[in-house]
Each structure stands twice: as C-alpha cells, then as structure tokens.
Design a protein around this nucleic acid. Structure first.
Lengths: 225, 225
DNA sequence: CGATTGTTGTCAGCTTGATGTCAGCTTGCT
DNA sequence: AGCAAGCTGACATCAAGCTGACAACAATCG
C-alpha cells in the first residue's frame, strides 16, 4: 500500500513516517503544498494524509486541484483547527475523512485502513458496529440504514465509542476527543452528553454501558458481557 | 454503456478515464478534435463528454459536424470559459448539457447518468427526485409535469440540491455554486434564498431540511429521518 | 422616458436548537 | 450506613438559522 504523507511539522512528519513504515506501508513524504501538488500529477497513491496548514500551497488548494484533475484517491486531512468550518470545507472539497490534532496514532491508522478498504470496495469510509454504521465521510450515523439525528457533540461521541467499540473509553479520553486546546469542560458534561446519547440509542437496543471508575463502552443489548 | 471522452489535458483525461472506467463505463479517449471527429463517423456511443478547447479542430466544430451528420448522441460539453457566451453557443449547436471547469467528479457523473437516461427515454436531460424533475437543457423545474415558477437563483439552488439529493449541501458549497468569481455573497443570502425556495416547495410536500452546522438537504415529507 | 413589476442582497429582530452547569437524586461498593 | 461516582431534569447561554421589511437594480410596458 502506497501512502503519501504531506506534513510540514518536522517531528510529526518523522513520527508518522516511521509508524506507517513499520506497519508496512510504502510512505512518501512531502513537506510543502507545492511539491505535493506536483508529485500528485504523476504519481498514484492508495491513500493521502494531508495537513491543511502547509507552506507555499495550503492543503485545501492541493486537495482542490487533485479533485479537479479527477483523481479519486482517498484523502484524510489533518487539521489543527477545531471549528466546523474547515472540516466542512475540507469535506466539500472532496476529502474522505479528517482528524483533528492532536490525535492518536492508533486512531489515524484505523482510519487510514478504513479509507483503503473503501478505496478498494468503492464505498465511503465507514466504521460498523452491528447494525450501526458510522460514515466518516459525511459524519452521519446510521442504524439499519436510517440516519440518526444526532447533534455535533453526540456524533463526536458516537465516533469515538464506535472506533473503540467494546473497549472501555475513559472520561478523560472523551474530554480530550471532544475539546480542543482552548475549550474546557467538566467531567459532568461528559456524563450529560452520554446521558443524552444513551437516551437516543436505547430506542434502537444499543447500550452504552458504564464501567464505574473506568469509563464507558458500547454494546448491543443482546450481547451480554 | 459506451462513453467517448474528448479531452486534451493529460491529467484530466487520465483522471476522468479512470473514474468512468471504475464506474463501469466502456471509455474511449481521444485527445484532439480531428481524431474524435473521424472516430465519430463510424463509431456509436451512448454519451460523449467533449472539451471545447481542443487542438486541430475545436469542440464546437466536432459537435457541429456530428449533428450535421444527423447523429443524436447526447453530448456534454466541458468548458474552461466562465462566461455564458460559449455555454449558449454550445447548447445552440446541439449540446445537451454543459459543465464549467473546474467541476466536481460527482457532478459530472450525475449529469452523464442523466444524459444516458435521456438517451434511452428519448427525452431531454433530466434529473429527477420523486415527483420533481429538473430539466437541465432548459433549466426548468417541474412538479408532476407542472413547471414551477422559480427565479434564476432559485433554479440554481434547486439544481444543486437535486443533484445531491438526500445528501447534505453546505452553505459554502451553495455560495460557490451561486456566485461566480467576482460576485460576493453573505451566508445569510443563502439562508434567504433557501427560505424563499422552501416556501414554494412546501406547497408540494417537498422539504428542504436544515442540518444545523452542516447545510441543507432535499427530502420529501414522507421520508422521515 | 417614467412607471410598474420582479429579483435579490442586506439587515434586524426573532426563534430554535445545542450544550454546559447545577442540584438533587440514584447506584454500587465497602 | 455512608460515601463517592454517576445520572438526569431544569435552566441559562449562546450561536445558528429564519423571515419580514426594505432598498437597489433590472427588465418590461405604456
């Protein structure tokens, strides 16, 4: 699997390159938008991991040009910007998934894997859990193909729970996933959000189980643990 | 489905060829007007995607000669020229639809699909959504065959919403679709236009649903989410 | 040419929905 | 029982979105 990493931060760049190489990807690295853009006019990849804040030509522009050329290679964008605007703009321009910094390596790898699966199968990037499907490309959660009406926060929570399905997710981790650097949130806020999500999911027989002192995990009602 | 792509830009050509092949079309590619013209004298296609700026013989001429021979194959023209002049000229010469570069692959594919449907049914290029029909050749929107009286802006909005039917269309994307290079528009203007269009559509039981923070999507009232 | 009509962007004030905080309650562990 | 962890209804706040009113402009008609 051939992966292009476009990232200007030296440390992140090295770390990711090493990690992906270790996982068996053939990794090429570019550290500015212009070179990446040029490279992409003649070199094919299975997946592209693209930082948005880049020197010379920003990530948006690289993505825009790639798609204008009709290139469908799955692209995951990395962004330091938390707000929805950039996320939406990126997905509009044809990104298939995104991840907000700081993120965890595990998570990035899982999503890259999902994108590659998607590339082969032709569908969009999805995480599934029983009858639940989380479509990362439009950030929608479906139950038996019916879209659930969830708020942004609830979607973010679902995403995390499904990504780690059947594993315990701590409140601290949830806080980290929902808040960026500047925002602050109490643990109680997590409880409240869990409560709200739980209410919506119970209707469909999906349970968010509480592991006292540790966190939460996703389970379906039949599936007793 | 057999598709002829006439395009001289190397990158775009490759990208489109790959994309259409992937979608199951039998794609032939010509990169100049003269060869395309000759090929078309003996080879039949279901649909032709034709760039206007071509070496040797421009797209207008290829189209003109094709129609002069009495060939009715649906033709979608691609043009880099923003102004209406060429679009109109193309449609006058017998093109069935057009797309201005840069365009999105999704959009091109949707329109090609529409053209093919039209080719089979013998009508003109249409996008349908339930009882709604959008006729791209005269830019009219019909509900159960009754034309809706919509302003230009509303038509443009309908076109976009129907093209992406049941998918969320962001305000940013709408802005981009409604405004050309020089114009500027506020997000509120989009809201106002949505509001006006919504009012007209509600009468027919068609709903423009708001997805808070993300955008809008077209749905019919029965189709609960 | 002036009047009428229709289109469309802007604005302001309002409505709606999302989301954090809090308080008081429930649960489960020892 | 007693305590800490967790739950949840109620409320407050804020941002997103809606829409009536208006103004600027263009097209049409007498």
């Amino acid at each position: 699997m051939r992966l292009l990493l476009v990232e200007d931060d030296l440390i992140l760049k090295d770390g990711l390159e090493r990690a992906f190489s270790k996982s068996g990807y053939a990794v090429d690295v570019m550290s500015d938008g212009d070179s990446a853009n040029k490279l992409l006019t003649y070199q094919e990849y299975d997946v592209i991991v693209l930082d948005l804040g880049l020197p010379k030509l920003d990530g948006f522009e690289v993505l825009k040009r790639l798609r204008a050329r009709g290139n469908k290679t799955p692209v995951l964008i990395l962004t330091a910007l938390e707000d929805t605007r950039n996320r939406v703009k990126g997905l509009d321009l044809g990104a298939d998934d995104y991840l907000t910094k700081p993120f965890e390596l595990d998570e990035l790898e899982a999503r890259v894997r999902a994108l590659i699966r998607r590339g082969i199968s032709g569908g969009s990037a999805k995480i599934t859990f029983g009858d639940l499907v989380f479509d990362t490309s439009n950030r929608q959660c479906l139950f038996q193909n019916v879209p659930l009406s969830l708020s942004q926060r609830e979607v973010a929570l679902m995403e995390l729970l499904m990504l780690k399905a059947t594993k315990v997710v701590s409140k601290a981790k949830i806080l980290e996933h929902l808040c960026s650097w500047d925002e602050e949130m109490s643990e109680n806020a997590v409880e409240v959000n869990i409560s709200r999500l739980r209410k919506k999911l119970n209707v469909f027989g999906i349970e968010i189980r509480t592991i006292r002192g540790l966190g939460y995990l996703l389970a379906s009602l039949e599936n007793k643990v």
